[in-house]
């Protein structure tokens, strides 16, 4: 029973991480790649760690596994937010199949402050060509 639970957790976790890796290679732009790693890789690593907790079934391993899972779940979104923001300023383009970009008009490209409304066009934002007209 214990071995079956461990095996399932480990296999599903490893499979999810493999899917994340395939996604990182196949996805068309940085942001869709980050979608793949923040979801699949995070849950995959978490499941494998839970598998070790079930396998060893001791208090010290369980606390360590739970701490690791909690840490991964807490840090992955923060890292994604910071990296996505930095990449946006760097001018990493969105995939040409993207349908809308409501972020571009709202940054102050001088101070990097983000407003809640659309700003006048800034001369400092040439790195991001506006998307073509959104598809219906």
């Amino acid at each position: 029973m214990q071995a079956a639970v461990t095996g399932t957790l480990v296999l599903v976790g490893a499979g999810l991480m493999l899917i994340a890796a395939i996604g990182v290679v196949r996805m068309p732009d940085l942001f869709t790649r980050m979608q793949a790693t923040t979801k699949a890789a995070t849950l995959g690593a978490g499941l494998v760690m839970l598998g070790t907790a079930v396998h060893f079934a001791t208090f010290s391993v369980t606390t360590r596994a739970v701490a690791a899972v909690a840490f991964v779940l807490l840090t992955a979104p923060i890292a994604a937010h910071l990296l996505g923001r930095a990449a946006y300023f760097l001018g990493v383009p969105l995939w040409e199949g993207s349908v809308r970009d409501e972020l571009r008009d709202r940054y102050d490209w001088e101070t990097h402050i983000l407003a809640s409304e659309v700003r006048p066009e800034s001369p400092l934002a040439p790195e991001h060509p506006p998307l073509q007209t959104p598809k219906p």
Binding site: M17, A20, A21, V24, T37, A41, G44, A45, V72
Partner: peptide, 8 residues
């Protein structure tokens, strides 16, 4: 991602 895989 490589770190996550390393953890696993």
């Amino acid at each position: 991602l490589i770190t996550m895989l390393g953890l696993g």
